[in-house]
Nucleic acid binder design. Structure first.
Lengths: 255, 255
DNA sequence: CTCCCTATTTACTCCGACATATTCCGAGCG
DNA sequence: CGCTCGGAATATGTCGGAGTAAATAGGGAG
């Protein structure tokens, strides 16, 4: 009955909140600190975070707080602890890289170019297929959400946070219209990567193209129920984004 | 303060030691219990797990153990706790459904048919594209791993756990050959779903086709570097699997 | 009578000490 | 010389209490 009220986790009120803080709770802050340290390579797989007591003492927190932070990292597959053996960083393939929080840690410092490429490749695979499904399954509410996101994108530009949020909303609405939970979960991961790269491109003064017409083409195809057209239009969109990103990053290595 | 040196003594000595059972640790067991309860729908989104103390008392464990279990669930996006408000189950779209542990909880009881369909749809999207990339990027070691998995599949059948493991190895080798971390993470999720459904189909006496030739076709195309052929062969494979699953599930009168 | 401000209550958060279990390492024995 | 047993070290599990933030209730003003 109070279903409309459980959304507040991080005070979504004003634009003053910058990009999901390090964690309001203490153990959240510790987890953030350790997580970024691991993702940035400061602790390599196989390394040992020696000494529960030593670490807690160095961070000036109690063992409980440190323990709960380790619990979070363990849940995300970053570390594993065994009695006497200590807490060691697991190999990369055990990491839950699609976890939104892990993704945030990965983008907190200087993210690995290869990893960003991976995410965009995943996006290039998933989003056209999602657009195809959305064209077949969307209903009126889905289209309404997409249209609203489009108008918001027109009003603000991609240089503002509001504009990027509208962009995310548009793609999210498409994922939502696929009626596929597994796909929907990917939106957070992809959205984070896209968001970061758009900001990156903006810093690099490399936002020449107007993305609106491409988005409109996708919308039109989905609204018309044209599955193949929607997939193709989305393909164009992600290909352009991939190309832009590649040039902005200074990767001369074309495919 | 980086103690990154005195590490690799027994690092690769034991390949897979931890993370076996549902939870050897106490808080792991609690998390498993609560996780399956949430995934099975016993606790719906918006519900409140009232009372840290009450719950800890009911489960006959200390508050710390319960708290660490809650911490795990929080890390996976299943719940969120706030002072005074209690610990409430988050809406489904916040759940980290691709987390291997969450997936395990989802398949612990009677998994939601819609969710299984979602996973197979995701697989049908991702795996052909992965096969295409693998055909372009595989090296000798990748091909060797695939070949070994294939011979193992021939020796055992899909009715045995060893055979299913070989199947997973084959698909995993393809994902590995894409050189894409983001795709690789999905293998665990997809593998779990596929594994469950093969067992399900076996129980329903619905394993008519010999899957080996289809797998061989995929292997040949990847080995030949034929990107389009690999994608198409994999497409056939997943389509057949999807069809089999659909028919097997269409008959609730299986066992 | 309605609205807003304050106070109380409630439940999470953090803490440090204690008890237990497991592992590593070395001493003693066959 | 190799094996086994026992002690030491370290991580896990437990406990109760102090602190803090938030929601609800109650009182006062308009």
């Amino acid at each position: 009955m109070s279903e409309a009220n459980f959304v507040n986790e991080e005070e979504s009120a004003r634009p003053a909140d910058e990009a999901r803080g390090p964690g309001r709770r203490l153990h959240g802050a510790i987890a953030h600190k350790l997580g970024t340290a691991i993702l940035s390579g400061k602790y390599a797989p196989g390394d040992i975070l020696s000494g529960e007591v030593a670490f807690a003492e160095e961070l000036q927190v109690s063992r409980s707080a440190y323990r709960e932070a380790i619990q979070v990292l363990t849940a995300k597959g970053l570390v594993a602890s065994r009695p006497k053996a200590g807490t060691r960083v697991l190999p990369r393939d055990r990491w839950n890289l699609l976890d939104p929080e892990v993704l945030g840690w990965a983008f907190a410092g200087e993210p690995d170019i290869e990893f960003v490429r991976s995410l965009f490749e995943l996006r290039a695979i998933v989003e056209p297929a999602a657009a195809r499904l959305a064209a077949q399954r969307r209903d009126k509410d889905d289209l309404k959400a997409m249209k609203e996101a489009l108008t918001a994108m027109r009003r603000h530009t991609l240089t503002t946070e509001a504009g990027r949020a509208a962009d995310r909303d548009f793609h999210n609405a498409i994922l939502q219209a696929t009626r596929n939970d597994a796909l929907l979960v990917l939106s957070a991961s992809i959205g984070a990567a896209v968001n970061w790269t758009t900001q990156f491109k903006q810093r690099a003064r490399a936002l020449p193209r107007n993305p609106i017409p491409d988005h409109v083409r996708v919308y039109d195809a989905i609204a018309a129920g044209d599955a193949a057209g929607a997939a193709e239009a989305m393909n164009v969109l992600v290909d352009l984004a991939l190309e832009d990103t590649r040039t902005a990053m200074g990767q001369p290595d074309g495919v």
